[in-house]
Design a protein around this nucleic acid. Sequence first.
DNA 1: CTTGCGGATTAGACTCATTCTAATTGAGTT
DNA 2: AACTCAATTAGAATGAGTCTAATCCGCAAG
Lengths: 148, 148
Amino acid sequence: MIRNLTEHDKEHLQEALVKSGQKVTPQREAVFTVLLAERDHPTVDEVFNRAREVMPGLSLATVYNCLETFVGCGLVRQVNHERESTRYCPNLAPHAHFRDKETGQVHDIELPPDVMKSLRSILPPGFDSEVIEISFLGRAQAKDSHSN
Amino acid sequence: MIRNLTEHDKEHLQEALVKSGQKVTPQREAVFTVLLAERDHPTVDEVFNRAREVMPGLSLATVYNCLETFVGCGLVRQVNHERESTRYCPNLAPHAHFRDKETGQVHDIELPPDVMKSLRSILPPGFDSEVIEISFLGRAQAKDSHSN
DNA sequence: CTTGCGGATTAGACTCATTCTAATTGAGTT
DNA sequence: AACTCAATTAGAATGAGTCTAATCCGCAAG
Ligand SMILES: [Mn+2]
Ligand SMILES: [Mn+2]
Ligand SMILES: [Zn+2]
Ligand SMILES: [Zn+2]
């Protein structure tokens, strides 16, 4: 189920790319569309397979390139858990990641400002941090998967 | 500068190994000694090179095996930053990791119980987490390196 | 002692996610 | 029509980590 980009998302993509001196291409649109379609933190291969359905000639190398470009211009975040394949997340709000040990699914966990603050406060003087990564490992009750 | 294990550390090693049905071997002692000698979160290769100085016949495979064993019986933690080589940490107290963007050094950051609590509290109902990993990326002022 | 057992160690082959290389494409320009 | 230059592409290369199969060795039984 890959819907097209909304006007808003298209502008978001275009603005970020153009702002960093890069071009909007059909491949980049396709990959970005895949990322927005499901918020399930897909791996490169998953993105590749989904995007191929709509753009059969797309190459894996290009998926790597697109995702790297998006990370570079702040459109998506990389998500790493242990040594597994890198996953990609288009949620730009500050959030942590919860990895379900059973299913492997990755869920976003909202990160309230006061928690962020208390985290920064544990840094000793002289330590200055731009990026904080928080990841949980455990089990999550099933709920349902239409969490798009 | 690889000192020998203290009696206390030797007992710690032996207890953890025996408790999980495994043997104390010279290789395991050497690798554990290396880990305790410097709290700098060495990679497998760094552990290998340091341990070889005191046990020249030691193989890389064995270092992988020892470290896996130690992780399995809770003697050390793995530390991953992005896609870099896994590092190893013998600090069993709850702590976060700070990675210096400039030097690559990894520093332990103490994690007070109230911060742990506020972190657990952000999990929605139904989410149960055993492991929380927190890592900072940024710059740390030099201080000095005799932080053993 | 001598032998047998089973875990530990070892060298080297293998895996596979990611990166690199070099050739090709194609949209926009001269 | 030719040029330019980023983007795309296929395939090779990389390298941390894992696997395999042979050897080692401490210990216990005979
Ligand atoms: Mn789940
Ligand atoms: Mn530092
Ligand atoms: Zn996310
Ligand atoms: Zn540590």
